[in-house]
Amino acid sequence: MTKPPLKTRRKLTIVDYICFGLVGAIIAYAIYRVSDVLVYNWNWSRVFNFVLYYDEESSSYVPNLLLLGIATTLRLAFWATIVAATIGLIMGYMRTSKNLAMRMISRCYVELVRNIPPVVFIFIFYFFLSGQLMPVIGLDDLDKNGTFVSSGIFYILFGDPKLFSNFVAGALCLALFEGAYITEIVRAGIQSIQKGQWEAARAVGLSRLNVLRDIIFPQAIRKILPPLAGQFITLIKDSAIVSLISIQELTFLATEVASTTTKVFETWIIVGAMYFILCYSFAATFSHLEKRALRARR
């Protein structure tokens, strides 16, 4: 067997060096401005203490506000994605329905969400949710000392029980918001299935539900997984807006850290890095999985 020729390593050209040079110059200038012109007293360790601090009593490192904040961000993203995916699946199907009322309802939902600034949407829904819905479902009188509520599993899933109704409100707001985008992803997925698949499924006499469950959704899901994964990452970033309704996630806690330490630059650079590491590692994982799935299917 003959081996395929090795890929030639691409060489850098003069244009590349010029580009790198320009970017390097801009960074150098920024550093110069910050260090020389803007007289600023950097103090990273002060802010790092809010990520992890050394507890003298137990003589070990303990996660502090920012790390707790990113845990809350992750919990928010997790639950919001589950709810948003459910909304998206139902609404996305309704978008492709033959029934006019169903199409109109889902279309209104999507257009409403997409044409209002996220922050405004979150404000409107938060006051509705926390003011009207939460008392009705009775989340406010959650028994703080119940066996499940005080267990470790509850803490891992939902965070501090004292903030539970606050957390649910934030997750629901995010879910309603992201649900609209997932609706569009699902719609595109369903519409990408060839007409012949619907016809063949109907022609063998499958019921409407079976056509969807056995033929359309399984094929659509494979197509929408990559954009859905992308939407999950977007959701992590978007979750920063619920800091405005006092959900104690990373951005909210970062504002507090920045104001107590007065180290604004350090705080936000560290928080930015935390978001980046989180989102980029998810993106890398997803693209790795996608490549593997592609190879397996071949």
């Binding site: 060839q194 012949g196 698949q197 016809e199 063949a200 499924a201 109907r202 022609a203 063998v204 006499g205 499958l206 019921s207 409407r208 056995d214 033929i215 399984p218 094929q219 494979r222």
Partner: peptide, 23 residues
């Protein structure tokens, strides 16, 4: 729909482009 599904079960159809379920 119910009656139509009954009819479709008594009628087999073969298409130009096969339309097998690829998954």
């Amino acid at each position: 729909m119910k009656q139509l599904e009954q009819v479709r079960r008594e009628v087999g159809m073969v298409f130009q482009s096969f339309n097998l379920f690829p998954h």
